[in-house]
């Protein structure tokens, strides 16, 4: 018996030496350890052995079997690893080839800038409102302290639909609409398209503005500056500063033009800011008490500020776009730059 076991072990070892693939090893396992395998056969011969010797040879046979199993398992692992390595190597691809996917489209730079403003302002507690583009003269001008045939109308060359209906020349008419409908505290921004009879390298007959309106008790020029400075810092960089210059708008008093430190050169002076270090970005002011009163808000109790910023101007600064007309040419090669 001992001899038989030694013989089996020797022949197994010889065959194991030759087997290298997972398949060959499996075949070997079946032949030695399988249901009809070598060990099963030998096991059957145990019945011919004397009863007292059975435990001894039984253990001997089992030990040999366990040993073979271990060796097989060991070699199996190695073989599997080797095979996987070979497969992965064979499956190697050129990862520099293009991906298989539908190409993404893009969002217009004007919409991108609008979305940035919307995010900044909503985080400051502002509501977003929108209003009609074809607007009554009454809202666009009269409630805003610009009567008919007033010289201030020269500032905004207007497209007329009828004597009383215009294409809004600014987003400010929504100021009036909001104040007529809502009680203070009011904090809204109003993005939208506006129209003026104008067409050259820096003016488009249609452009987009965001209007801002805050009405509450104790609103001052300092609040206006703080609010706009926060927005410019978030929009450009934390180092951005702003400055006020006196100006005139019929619906605000005092009125200011607002410059921010040039985001390109940081205020040192460059081509974009024409060497001044400052870029004019918007007009603003303290709400004229006449406008508050026109809109049914008691100007002896409440005050407020308003501002209007041109999206094209901000986008031109933000992206370094030299000519306003590029926005409306809609060349796919331009648009795809804004994926």
């Amino acid at each position: 018996m001992q001899e038989t076991i030694d013989k089996i072990t020797r022949s197994f070892n010889a065959e194991l030496e030759k087997a290298s693939s997972v398949a060959e090893l499996n075949e070997l396992r079946v032949r030695y350890l399988g249901k009809n395998g070598v060990f099963t056969e030998v096991m059957k011969s145990l019945k011919d052995i004397a009863k007292e010797d059975k435990p001894f040879f039984g253990k001997l046979l089992n030990d040999a079997r366990v040993k073979i199993e271990e060796v097989l398992q060991e070699k199996d692992k190695t073989a599997a690893k080797e095979e996987q390595r070979a497969r992965l190597l064979a499956e190697r691809i050129d990862i520099t080839l293009p991906g298989v996917s539908a190409e993404a489209g893009s969002i217009h730079p004007l919409s991108k800038v609008k979305a940035e403003f919307a995010e900044i302002f909503t985080s400051l507690g502002f509501e977003i409102k929108e209003g009609p583009e074809v607007e009554l003269d009454f809202f666009n001008f009269q409630l805003l302290n610009i009567p008919k045939d007033h010289p201030a109308r020269d500032m905004q060359d207007t497209f007329y639909i009828t004597d009383d209906v215009v294409l809004r020349t600014h987003t400010s008419p929504m100021q009036a609409r909001v104040m007529l409908e809502q009680k203070p505290p009011i904090r809204v921004i109003i993005p939208g398209k506006v129209y003026r009879v104008d067409d050259d390298a820096s003016h488009s007959p249609m452009f987009q503005q965001i209007e801002g309106l805050v009405v509450d008790k104790n609103i001052s020029l300092c609040d206006l500056k703080g609010c706009l400075e926060t927005v410019c810092k978030k929009l450009f960089s934390s180092k951005t500063k702003i400055r006020f210059r006196p100006s005139f708008f019929p619906f605000t008093e005092p009125s200011v033009e607002v410059d921010c430190s040039c985001p390109l050169c940081g205020g040192k002076g460059c081509r974009i800011c024409k060497g001044t270090g400052w870029i004019e970005i918007l007009g603003a002011g303290i709400l004229n008490p006449k406008v508050l009163d026109n809109c049914g808000i008691d100007s002896s109790v409440y005050s407020g500020f308003a501002f209007g910023v041109g999206m094209e101007r901000v986008a031109m600064i933000r992206y370094g776009i030299p000519d306003i007309r590029i926005f409306f040419e809609n060349d796919i090669r331009f648009l795809k730059q804004y994926k």
């Binding site: 909503t122 507690g125 509501e127 009011i186 904090r187 805050v214 500056k225 703080g226 006196p246």
Partner: peptide, 24 residues
């Protein structure tokens, strides 16, 4: 001179909730 105006972020104003409309 407008440089005398200091930046204050709505220090005396009431807090508002804000947010976008469903259409926006």
């Amino acid at each position: 001179g407008y440089d005398k105006i200091k930046s204050k972020l709505l220090s005396k104003a009431q807090q508002t909730i804000g947010g976008a409309s469903n259409s926006y």
